[in-house]
Amino acid sequence: MQALKRAIWVFHLNTGGCNGCDIEILAALTPRYDLERFGIKLVGSPRHADVLLITGPVTRKMEERLKRVYAQTPDPKMVVVVGNCGSSKGVFHHHYNVVGPVDKFVPVDVYVPGCPPRPEAIIYGVAKAWIKLEKLKEEKK
């Protein structure tokens, strides 16, 4: 389990956001913030991922896809929601095509608020994602 803490592979999924948070996620990979020094790596397939980094409120079309991507990720997995929209629908609250925040459909472990959150906050959120594992360990005891 110690290894999981230090080699977190992240899959990034946009469920209908405005791309603001996605740009901040990319900023976290740049030389200034450099996620890779913690062993955090962005991967292209949910099958390789440990952490799902989800941005944006869930639109009607993305609901099914979100559930599928969550099911495709191998255990143990963590979900981190980046930005206000994913956490609470944000400015899209009364939208006709938004069906809910991310935690209505999949269990969420870490919320990173902000519109958009700073890259430091995103790095902190991803690094915090392993608290779920600690919780699981305590439940076993």
């Binding site: 389990m1 290894a3 999981l4 230090r6 080699a7 062993g39 440990d50 191998p74 255990d75 143990p76």
Partner: peptide, 10 residues
Amino acid sequence: RDIEKLMLKQ
């Protein structure tokens, strides 16, 4: 670390 983690995963 990557290998160790991958071996633990489902």
